[in-house]
Write a protein that binds this DNA or RNA. Structure first.
Length: 285
DNA sequence: ACCCAGGCGGGCG
DNA sequence: CGCCCGCATGGG
């Protein structure tokens, strides 16, 4: 174990990678070797992850990668034992905690998160991955390390602004192409997403919903995974069905009713992790 | 062939 | 406010 290495409890890279968060739409992870690589801005992060008892051991190529990794997986931020204790419900969440123990929320780039979740609407995870990778290949700029190309960065809003509608559609974006074009322009010229960092949840969400193609659910996803606002509880089809089935005898509820229920059951910053565990659990049925 | 996927905007009453 | 509709695309 090198000085750059890390030994952490309550961290499971596999569950995290499989839980369909922005980073995991394009990161390369090999379950058999435990090697993970992804681009973060102009930095290429390479890590080797293995298990040692109940702990995970992570090795890095360099210090910047280590720092980025800790921030990205919220390793200094979240005390999982405390969070688990707050989330527990003797029901679906407790089951999910047992099943997906160590699954983490990731903290992603706000613009990257916005793009990923605009694409997510009326779509499925497999296709989202394909579309995101196509956009990176088409519009991202190469990351150069020691004079050689080591990967491709996620396209910035300026870079994506240059895309023509037909080209965006060729990446598989479909009817969402107009939203991406509009968002790229808006986030370049009108709304600086990086200025929202650290602002309260409600204010962040309100600003995000000014973007064409970003509604209540996508704004919650961006608030949660792009800004770390753990009060957010995005309700998608899986979550909705799961809550209705387990807490309302299968009766249909509106999104608004479900939000009211959640505010009682998982108040404040308990919401975000509860949502991610329910989502992952519901999607793996 | 048919149904569904991490929804949204727009139009209607 | 609620409800309903269309929407690109590929996999089950």
């Amino acid at each position: 174990m090198t000085a750059k290495g890390l030994e952490i409890s309550d961290f499971d890279i596999r569950h995290t990678i499989e839980s369909a968060q922005p980073l995991t739409f394009h990161a390369d992870y090999d379950l058999s070797t435990g090697s993970l690589s992804y681009a973060s801005g102009k930095l290429l992060v390479e890590a080797g992850i293995s298990k040692k008892g109940k702990k995970s051991i992570v090795r890095f190529g360099n210090i910047p990668a280590r720092k980025e990794f800790i921030r990205r997986f919220r390793l200094d931020e979240d005390n999982m034992q405390r969070i688990y204790a707050q989330m527990s419900d003797n029901g679906i969440v407790s089951d999910a905690i047992r099943k997906y123990n160590g699954m983490r929320l990731t903290l992603n780039d706000p613009w990257e998160t916005t793009v990923c979740f605009i694409i997510s609407q009326f779509n499925n995870v497999k296709r989202i991955r394909g579309i995101v990778k196509a956009l990176i290949a088409e519009y991202g700029e190469p990351i150069v390390v020691d004079g050689r190309t080591a990967g491709t960065g996620f396209p910035t809003s300026e870079q994506l602004m240059r895309a023509k509608d037909a080209d965006l559609r060729r990446c598989g974006t479909g009817f969402r192409a107009k939203y991406l074009a509009s968002a790229a322009d808006f986030c370049t010229n009108n709304l600086d997403l990086y200025r929202l960092a650290g602002k309260p949840y409600a204010e962040t969400k309100e600003s995000l919903m000014e973007i064409d193609g970003v509604g209540d659910k996508v704004a919650d996803c961006i608030a949660l995974m792009g800004y770390g606002r753990l009060e957010a509880f995005p309700i998608d089809v899986h979550i909705k069905r799961s809550l209705e089935r387990h807490y309302f005898n299968g009766n249909k509820k509106t999104i608004k009713q479900l939000h009211e229920f959640i505010n009682m059951k998982w108040p404040g910053k308990t919401a975000g992790y509860a949502q991610q565990y329910i989502f992952h659990s519901a999607r793996n049925l």
